[in-house]
Design a protein around this nucleic acid. Sequence first.
DNA 1: TTAAGATTGTTGATAATGCAACTAATTTTT
DNA 2: AAAAATTAGTTGCATTATCAACAATCTTAA
Lengths: 150, 150
Amino acid sequence: MKTPLTKSDCVIQILQTATVIWRESRRFFRPFGLTEAQFNILNLLGQSPNGLCQRELSDRLVVDRSNITLLLDRMTAHGLLVRNDVPGDRRRYRVCLTEKGLSLWRRIHPHYEKALAHLVENLAAEDTKQLLKNLQEMELQAKTWKEELS
Amino acid sequence: MKTPLTKSDCVIQILQTATVIWRESRRFFRPFGLTEAQFNILNLLGQSPNGLCQRELSDRLVVDRSNITLLLDRMTAHGLLVRNDVPGDRRRYRVCLTEKGLSLWRRIHPHYEKALAHLVENLAAEDTKQLLKNLQEMELQAKTWKEELS
DNA sequence: TTAAGATTGTTGATAATGCAACTAATTTTT
DNA sequence: AAAAATTAGTTGCATTATCAACAATCTTAA
């Protein structure tokens, strides 16, 4: 593009960067038999010893509840997790990793962290701090998008 | 999360911010009868008076060629664009907006720019410049991801 | 306590997405 | 010129994704 840079170009760049990261990360998860979406579930549950309910997964991963249902169905079919009852609330399930799911997570997790670290290895600590801050600010702004389009 | 911040947290934050921007932007495009993916096509073609071939759309939008096929099929059905022949090459199409598509783009585009600007309105020009640079660096790193996962 | 309201997860419809395999056409090699 | 390699677009398949509507359950208020 020959057009001069504007401030909003960095919004486009965020989407572009995220898209590329997603595309590349798929290659990594495939050998483990996981999609990126499935890994996100696995990774979140791996860090939640008490399990999470579907609503929590949905909120934390910014994924629709109905989508969570399908994802969990498939992962359950693969023996990676189970839906346990929640004592006081019969609407909810406590989604927990099985032994198989947990051991898969333990196997992937260090590689994942290493892969993430590779992305930022050329950035100064100060840069990543600022980056994090600015991204959070933009996320906040996005959430308060209201009537910019009629 | 109680865990201390690490540099790679900003990678997670990129994905999170992008996800939120996507989710919110869908609300904007819906009144125009467009999905986010369809708008991206419209927006790119709107800025390309001579049209683009599907491969170019695929590369620029980081979307699989097969996906472009389906997107264009739907948009063609809605009368937004056409596939013209390319004189010297019978493999390709020159994808162009119709009058309807172009006028839709002209109607949406200013709102879109305004919406993007809103996301960065609280950031200093210096910040967005740095943000852009860092994001590009990370995109580059992602493209050279190799054997971080076994 | 009962009625209204909110929450949780599921289902069905439709769209988006990527991958592999394929056809047709062009370009490069030999 | 013929064969080999590359490129452009399509198709089939499975997954991911959102949305709207729904049933079951819990919570709050009248």
